[in-house]
Design a protein around this nucleic acid. Structure first.
Lengths: 216, 216
DNA sequence: CACCGTACTATACACTGTACGTTAGGGAGA
DNA sequence: TCTCCCTAACGTACAGTGTATAGTACGGTG
């Protein structure tokens, strides 16, 4: 039997291969057997490096989080907050599979702690007290997550012609009597689903609300 | 062969059975064969009423959306907005499987249009222009979705003792040198993950930001 | 050189969604 | 009342999935 020579695998190699597969097939369609085949290895070989599939998910997520840039220093804190939020959003756009990775599992891992550290540091330096900083961090994080997830998933739907046709059809079939506002605002709703402007609109609302309670 | 008598099934019965199963097992662990077995029927019987699994997911989601109460009228618009957001959040808390149902698929169906109609109607009546109303609707919706999804999933993690232990361990192991803010704010972060207060904090930020651009 | 731990393989199991072809029950028309 | 057809439900089958378990050969260490 032409056995694979030893030590050709590594956790890092597996993570990168898994990531490549997720990028083309989507994180949900990704399979352990797929990455094993890609590496020319039996499915069970992966279990030497990862406890199970979820463990591999966590590793890939942490790997992606490691790509986030550091917080720019020397800028006013609202700009810093904006930068952190935007770079997380950008990362999600570049790696759509991150949506599923972040949605299904909780935060853990050093890389994830690193992004939390950046945002919390900015908020503390701005003079917010501990509780407000923590609350604001959670709010911003969940906003970026929810907003960008939504955008990415809608974009995916738009690419699938069959699904897109059905969505349009169900929109058109809405009675203008029963749903006057939805029907009237249909074009605006379509236009405001995603995009930098939409993201910044919500982010600005949050920052404007935060400005009211700015310390000092 | 003791065949199931005809016409005992219906789309509605299947949806309710599927929902029951999702509530106890989670929407991801739910299986078509499971609901078929529950109904004393072969797996393929369901395909008479639903095209595939996703189609059933959509039906269950729309069924849940139908449980949302109407917008209370006669209140100031910020209170109305708060009410809509809170009732969506409440519905998600009561039916955690709704998180996966909303995350995986786009909005469609009449019941979903109904909730959009409610919120949009309030915003238009408040005097916002079409674009602002649409943008605000999207922002509020994605905030509620992201924030509540996060909360529910964290709560689920907390219930699983093994996962919870590992999460605590990875928190404790963080170097206070490299992650001073995270370590220092750990108790606050744990406390502000979820709960009505945290939800309202973010919602109030958004509404405060919105108040700045209130018309008239 | 012998040994042992470990990195990998092989086999197997219990599942999943669903395509395909078949069968039987109930309602409609003669 | 008999007949026919439509369709709801059936059974079988297939290509997958994650992973438990047991076995095997290689590399480094004594």
């Amino acid at each position: 039997m032409a056995r694979t020579p030893r030590n050709t695998l590594s956790a890092d190699l597996i993570v990168r291969t898994a990531l490549d597969l997720m990028e083309v097939k989507g994180a949900d369609a990704f399979s352990l057997r797929g990455v094993a085949a890609e590496l020319g290895v039996g499915p069970m070989a992966l279990y030497t490096y990862f406890r199970n599939k979820d463990d591999l998910y966590d590793a890939v997520r942490d790997h992606l989080m490691g790509l986030l840039p550091a917080v720019p220093d020397g800028a006013p804190w609202p700009d810093q907050v904006r930068a952190v939020c935007r770079s997380l959003r950008l990362l999600m756009l570049q790696h759509p599979c991150l949506v599923q990775l972040l949605a299904g599992r909780p935060l853990s891992g050093h890389e994830t702690a690193r992004v939390a550290e950046g945002l919390l540091g900015v908020l503390l330096a701005a003079g917010f007290d501990a509780e407000t900083a923590a609350r604001t961090h959670t709010t911003l994080f969940t906003y970026v997550l929810g907003s960008t997830s939504w955008e990415i998933q809608m974009a995916a739907e738009r690419r699938d012609p069959e699904a897109w046709r059905r969505l349009r059809a169900s929109m058109e079939s809405l009675s203008a009597r029963k749903f006057p506002s939805v029907v009237e605002l249909a074009p605006e709703l379509a236009r405001t689903t995603g995009g930098d402007e939409q993201f910044d609109y919500g982010l600005d609302l949050l920052l404007a609300g935060l400005a009211v309670r700015t310390p000092s």
